[in-house]
Design a protein around this nucleic acid. Sequence first.
DNA 1: GAGCACTGC
Length: 677
Amino acid sequence: MAFWKPGTIAPGSVVERDAQNELDSSILTTYNSFSRLSLQDQRQQLPIFANRNHILHLVETKRLLILVGQTGSGKTTQIPQYLHEAGWANAGRIVACTQPRRVAATTVAARVAQEMAVTLGEQVGYSVRFDEKWDPIRTRIKYLTDGMLLREMMVEPLLQQYSVVMVDEAHERSLNTDIVVGLLKKVMRKRQDLRVIVSSATLDAQQFRDFFISGETIAEEETAILTLDGRVFPVDVHFRLEPCSDYLLATVDAVVKIHTLEEVGDILVFLTGREEIERAVELIEQEAKNVRNIPLQLLALPLHGGMSMESQLRVFEPTPRNTRKVVLATNIAEASVTIDGIVYVVDSGFVKLRSYNPQTCTSSLVVHPISKAAAQQRAGRAGRTRAGKCFRLYTEAGYDTLRSTNVPEMQRSDLVPVALQLKALGVWNVLRFEFLSPPPAEMLARAFEILYSLNAVDDYGRLTIPYGMRLAELPIEPMMGAMLFNSVRFQCSEEIITIAAMLSVENIFVTQSGRRKEADFEKRKFSVEEGDHISYLNVYKTFLRQNQSPSFCRKHFLNYKALQKAVSVRNQLLRYIRQFSLSLTSSHDATTIRKCIASAYFSHAAMLQSDGTWRTLRGAGMSPVLHIHPNSVLLKMSPACVVYHEVVETTKSFMRDVTVIEPQWLPELAPHFYTKA
DNA sequence: GAGCACTGC
């Protein structure tokens, strides 16, 4: 293939896969060359074992250790054990290891408990939302999501119970990881004894060190950067010689070329979204019919977050005989989901990213070029089980123009919840908080204006007690929290908790390509003219009445897993209601429920214009022209006045989760915001 | 008559 310019990357030079994958490679006997060894012998075979004493020495003598960990180095499972063996968990102290994802925290904890031959939940435990197994007295090593560590810090800001905190996957720059890192720097000022380990990728290790040594919190000589070798297979990386004008067609072309020219092995393709993936599947299926001289069948499978769990599971089934599987995936396959047997990766070089515009309170979902770090992560997906190849649909010069690491989530998020959480975590002056990547001061100032309008902070920017503190404690966004508190007054808290839970989960209605009409028909059975919120209430009530039956969901195109999550969220919210001693009352009057929604979402009210679009009532000149989202039950209706949960900008500015209201409610419910004309 | 990347509390 003269088409491709080869450029090998050395074994171990790909960015670390997430902790769960690291674990998979040692659990799955098929691919574990050490499987016949005892667990202790297996531990000593890991590349990291050679560094054990060095790591312990660094933790002993330095206060901050930055680990550049390669794939399969075993750092997530081994380092906490080394620290435990060396006595860092003596005298009632605990070694903590944070993860950005729930599955990683729980599965790694299970593996470590197994290696230490202890019962999970005793010496080794984990803590994630909805699920925890650890013992306040006995637990010595604790794996937790960084979000859970933040919750613990609301109660114990100095983390006195922990001797070492290891922040894993810090290079992903998730919102919570960044907040944890910023807070750890603050804690290190007050606790000389605390040890911090930050695990990251090559490209940003120095940035983490610079962050901690700035402001003389800790001296440079109190820090160390250590690079660990990994256990992965080499991946040949091929660039295009010429840029392509249409990466979708280039994708299909690349898949067909791999299929005809390369030896057996499954293909993983990275694209940006559902629509694109479905088109690519179609095109590949067409092309596959024309390939006649190959004994292998080509099986194209989509993989994206909008699919039901059972459809997603299809990509994990073993590839049938005489078949080559090609999985066309979104970013879900970059870190969250690992597919075995992938030998070839086709990388479009693009990703769909959500970013937030605080001026219009709008989030947009736009296709962006990926970062170099993400490109390496994607390439690494080909080297899991044996040597692989990665075909990049961009030139080497194009690669050089990519930014080195991901845009931190902090830079593209609504800062209202961040500001509220930092206040609740005891950060007195949020504008002076040391962020790893500081957001513009005016964006933080705007966040405080909104917190003030919600009565979460007072004239001086102080958190109100108990209201602001309670809003911060709730695991939902502040405006939704306000709706929850208002529901007590409207005497419909039962229904509002359900609605809040349903708004917290995505993709309640699943759509399978080709069965859209059926799905639409089923959806209409739950739909009411009042709008999406009340329709969700219907879905939830019916789901419970059907005893949370998976087959009921399948029959009616409902997402079983999403609904189960809604049940968990609702139970959690119910616990908060009880904790705050709020009364639980039920209302069968949809008008009351709609008024309650509008009482918190009054700033999200929009009026129908003569041209058939909507505009927000206040600041209409600034607000974009709004449309009802195609997923809304109100799509074909033209309600005169609505409130919406959020606006997402894709091809247009769409209002998602819309409820019909009467315009005269607004001056009654929010007189400070709307004055009667 | 069109659309929705992925996490987390």
